[in-house]
């Protein structure tokens, strides 16, 4: 159409320009880290266009020999197990919150949310004292339990909103067929809420994967996680930017495919959550 032609195209172009600018903001820092990771120490401080071919894999080799791969594995194990346990405990709880008429439901949900509010700085000292007493410092169970304080509320909260959208009739018909409530949950409700389950698990995993503070305080040599291990590339004489960049990539890369696959599920499940 004629009246669309110029003004419309100008608007469209400015919209696309805006989106490109946003994309640049999102992506350029990542590109910068890639460059940083490939630069030898002697060329770190000169612009890439002055010596574009001065690249090396030394930083990657160096990090393979450090304690970092072990830390990466620790991160995976602890965040992963904490997420699985939180799902096992949290999904039924969310179901109960969403579908029951229990008294004190609101209080229970608030208590769960409160945990997410607690500033780790205050929380970690008593936690540390308990852990010392129980011999949990620098152990996997200790770190996993600490991570569950992060993941469990998140799982319960996001599953709650997901379950709220499951029509009651679906549950009732399952119960009519003689299934117990637990069976109905496992066989009927969870499959119906699959995108939400995936989304909750991924968001829970990410929040534990992201943790710095708990690991800083309650791990030592053997269970140290990747985010803390990165800080070990800062010595009291120098900062090993190359290794830091490689470590940042290593700690991000495993998450990206997960995010891409999960993207669909997260949007699907959340779209119900916010529609109300």
């Amino acid at each position: 159409m004629d009246d669309k032609s110029f003004a419309y195209r100008a608007k469209k172009a400015s919209g696309i320009a805006m989106m490109l600018a946003f994309l640049a903001f999102a992506v350029l820092p990542i590109l910068w880290v890639l460059i940083l990771s490939l630069r030898p120490a002697t060329a770190l401080f000169e612009p890439i266009w002055e010596s574009p071919t001065n690249l090396t894999f030394d930083n990657f080799r160096g990090i393979a020999d450090s304690g970092f791969p072990r830390a990466l594995l620790n991160s995976f194990l602890t965040a992963g197990i904490a997420t699985i346990l939180s799902m096992i405990v949290g999904v039924p709880a969310a179901f109960a919150l969403a579908k029951s008429r229990l008294r004190g439901k609101f209080v229970a949900s608030w208590v769960l949310l409160l945990l997410r509010m607690a500033p780790p700085v205050g929380f970690v000292i008593p936690l540390f004292l308990i852990y010392i007493n129980a011999g949990l410092i620098d152990t996997y169970p200790g770190l996993i339990m600490a991570y569950m304080t992060l993941t469990l509320p998140l799982v319960v909260w996001s599953m709650w909103t997901t379950f709220a959208q499951i029509p009651n009739e679906l549950i009732e018909s399952a119960l009519m067929d003689g299934a117990s409530l637990a069976k109905a949950l496992v066989l009927v409700v969870i499959p119906a809420a699959r995108p939400g389950v995936v989304a909750a698990a991924i968001l829970g995993f990410l929040i534990a994967w992201n943790d710095f503070f708990f690991a800083l305080i309650i791990t030592r040599g053997s269970t140290v996680t990747a985010p803390v291990s990165i800080m070990n590339f800062i010595s009291s004489d120098s900062v090993d930017w190359g290794s830091i960049a490689v470590a940042a990539i290593c700690v991000t890369l495993p998450i990206i495919p997960v995010m891409v696959i999960a993207n669909r599920y997260i949007v699907q499940s959340l779209s119900g959550a916010v529609k109300g």
Binding site: P92, A93, L97, F123, P126
Partner: peptide, 20 residues
């Protein structure tokens, strides 16, 4: 169904919180 989550939250969360 709700109980295990509340127990877990109390053990891992509420006790340290009281300590704080």
């Amino acid at each position: 169904m709700l109980l295990p989550a509340l127990i877990a939250v109390t053990a891992f969360g509420i006790v340290p919180l009281m300590g704080m």
